[in-house]
Amino acid sequence: MKKRGSFLFIEKNDEVYTLSMTPELQDDIGTVGFVEYIDADTLEVDGAILNLEASKTVFELASPLAGKIVERNEALIKEPSLLNSAKEEENWVVKLTDVDEEAFNQLEEA
């Protein structure tokens, strides 16, 4: 099941929720040149996931859901422009567990 919130896609597979870029967000920020993840391993709603610098903006990416970070897309750090990729296997940001399923269900359909 796939939802959207805070200009990100959230895809649920079993108990893992993968957050990735929406085309709208990609259009808005332009080519990403720098990515720095926040250190914390748990996220609050609207909590910062990472900071990025792109051709059109300097932006803090915030999470639409609270949860525990189980994986980060480490490839972004070396190659920030992967966030501009059309492929979700390249432009994903974090994978979360311990997400409130009800909160997920209430997000907008993707």
């Binding site: 720095e36 900071n51 903006t57 300097v58 803090e60």
Partner: peptide, 8 residues
């Protein structure tokens, strides 16, 4: 340590 994001 990095530029100021928009909206903060």
């Amino acid at each position: 340590g990095r530029k100021e994001p928009i909206g903060k």
